[in-house]
């Protein structure tokens, strides 16, 4: 959270302090990126290597783009981060997950999809970046507007 967001949050000082400290690591620039290629470069630091060791579980066709279940798992070792990118969304980065040595590299959530898009799973493992991709067709978009 940068200073401007911090100051405009407009809540009690105590709450602000807590929110500010907790959000120190929230990757604001990545979440505000509007172009998925640049976003992936930003997150991965370089071009991620396509990997068969990443499994994306998602419906082939999502009837309701407002709620699309996505699960990402991998057999890669020493996974430190998993990010889920919906290439065609106005803000492609949906979420990023910081793993610890206690984590098992698996995460499942539900994302919004404006239209048919590739869903990219970026995995950071052993200091390197890998990616998996899967197309999800959307019949009714779900980003509102």
């Amino acid at each position: 959270m940068d200073r401007r967001t911090f100051l405009t949050a407009g809540l009690g000082l105590g709450t602000l302090f807590v929110a500010g400290s907790v959000h120190a690591a929230w990757p604001k620039d990545a979440f505000e990126a509007q172009e998925s290629g640049a976003l992936i470069d930003m997150l991965a630091g370089s071009k991620p290597a396509p990997s068969d060791a990443i499994t994306i579980t998602a419906p082939d066709i999502a009837e309701n783009g407002a709620v699309v279940p996505i699960a990402v798992s991998t057999t890669l070792e020493d996974v430190t981060r998993i990010s889920i990118v919906v290439e065609q969304n106005p803000l492609p980065l949906t979420s990023t997950y910081d793993l610890t040595p206690d984590s098992v590299p698996y995460v499942s959530t539900r994302v919004k999809m404006q239209k048919t898009s590739n869903v990219v799973a970026l995995v950071e493992a052993g200091g390197k970046s890998y990616s998996g991709v899967r197309e999800v067709k959307v019949t009714i978009g779900g980003c509102g507007g």
Partner: peptide, 30 residues
């Protein structure tokens, strides 16, 4: 941000943007 802690140790952190669906569901393993 969603953090999971066990005995004071963070085991998992989720950073979310606006692309996560309303009334979010999250599953992870440790």
């Amino acid at each position: 941000e969603v953090t999971a802690t066990v005995g004071g140790e963070v085991v998992f952190t989720a950073n979310w943007g606006t692309g996560v669906a309303k009334n979010p569901y999250l599953s992870f393993k440790y």
